[in-house]
């Protein structure tokens, strides 16, 4: 079974250094170290477990700047077999529409039984790219998976899709696109052996011209963006908190008074 996992390099949240460039309001990707988007690690972990159980391999697909190869090596160290990176200066500043079209084009040229994506990213955070990719490629779309059970012999996949009441079980023929969530389980840490092995794994780089973009002949990339940031500012700080160090009953009385003062109760 071949599973393609869509992984996006994002600024490391723990660095706290995220900022936008003041000239074009694009994310300043040079200001922070990049890491694999956390939700994509769940997708990757689920894919690795499934190929361990059923045989096959995991292939990464990323659209990002050239520096993304470092981030992709981390995902290869976890156990993915190889990766495809679509990188092109014209794609910097891409919006959701362009990203969806380019990823659909790149995925459409790959061989796979399943494609996995994350529920959303920690930078753009739209959570809409995977549904769009599935729609452009005519793939069955199974979102918000808490469990993924392929049946390679029958060439079908079952997914427990989280909904507000619990979950619904979806079933579709392969190939299909599945959106992963954290409920699938903790991602592994790369082993030393994995890190060594990742160095020699294949990363194929494609330019925009190498991708048959799907979904209309309109231009893609930053220049074609359908959305524009006008400004960005830090929200006003909360100010120092009030601190209560009293025995529980007195502390509780003060908390209740505070909530009443703020008209919360």
């Amino acid at each position: 079974m071949r599973i393609v996992v869509l992984v996006k390099p994002v600024p490391d949240t723990a660095s706290g250094g995220e900022r936008l460039r003041p000239d074009d309001w694009r994310l300043d990707r040079a200001a922070t170290t990049a890491t694999v988007n956390a939700n994509d690690e769940y997708a990757l972990e689920a894919a690795l477990k499934l190929t361990e159980a059923h045989g096959g391999e995991v292939i990464l697909l990323t659209m990002a700047g050239t520096g993304a190869t470092d981030t992709m090596r981390k995902a290869l160290a976890m156990g993915a077999a190889s990766g495809v990176l679509v990188t092109d200066d014209a794609l910097g500043g891409s919006d959701i529409v362009s990203t969806t079209r380019v990823l659909a084009g790149a995925l459409g040229a790959m061989e796979y039984d399943l494609a996995f994506a994350g529920a959303d990213t920690s930078d753009g955070g739209g959570g809409v790219v995977p549904a769009g990719v599935a729609a452009l490629l005519g793939l069955p779309y199974l979102s918000y998976a808490a469990k993924i059970e392929p049946d390679p012999a029958a060439r079908t996949v079952r997914v427990n899709r989280i909904n507000p009441a619990g979950y619904e079980v979806l079933e579709a023929p392969m190939p299909a696109l599945v959106v992963a969530t954290q409920a699938l389980g903790e991602p592994r840490y790369p082993s030393l052996k994995g890190i060594m092995a990742a160095r020699s794994k294949g990363l194929e780089t494609k330019a925009l011209a190498d991708v048959a973009v799907v979904g209309g002949d309109a231009a893609v990339g930053g220049a074609a963006s359908t959305t524009a940031v006008l400004s960005a500012e830090a929200p006003p700080p909360r100010g120092a908190p009030r601190v209560i160090r009293e025995p529980a009953d007195e502390a509780a009385r003060q908390v209740v008074a505070f909530l009443a003062e703020r008209r919360i109760i």
Partner: peptide, 11 residues
């Protein structure tokens, strides 16, 4: 965005 670190305005 970025967990409340920045507020952006877009169109």
């Amino acid at each position: 965005v970025f967990g409340g670190k920045l507020t952006t305005t877009s169109r």
